[in-house]
């Protein structure tokens, strides 16, 4: 998919695990794992808001567009 989720990089920069994030924002580890591995087909604004709030970032820090080669 052309949309890349950079959750792994953001977590790494903040020295936070996926489990920590899951506990803090109340989204299941399974769903966050789907997001992190790029298997998600869509993302709710509420999820985006929760992640951006917790990681103090902008949506653009989390998502990027990479044209399919």
């Amino acid at each position: 998919m052309a949309i890349v989720v950079k959750l792994d990089d953001l977590l790494h920069a903040r020295r936070m695990t996926l489990t920590d994030l899951s506990d803090r924002i109340g989204i299941t580890l399974a769903n966050l794992s789907i997001l992190k591995t790029g298997k998600a087909k869509a993302m709710r604004f509420s999820t985006l808001e929760a992640i951006c709030t917790e990681l103090e970032c902008q949506p653009g820090d989390l998502l990027a567009f990479e044209a399919d080669s």
Binding site: N31, L32, K41, M43, T47
Partner: peptide, 8 residues
């Protein structure tokens, strides 16, 4: 349903 299941 498949779309919904892929929505996080």
């Amino acid at each position: 349903r498949a779309d919904l299941e892929g929505t996080v």
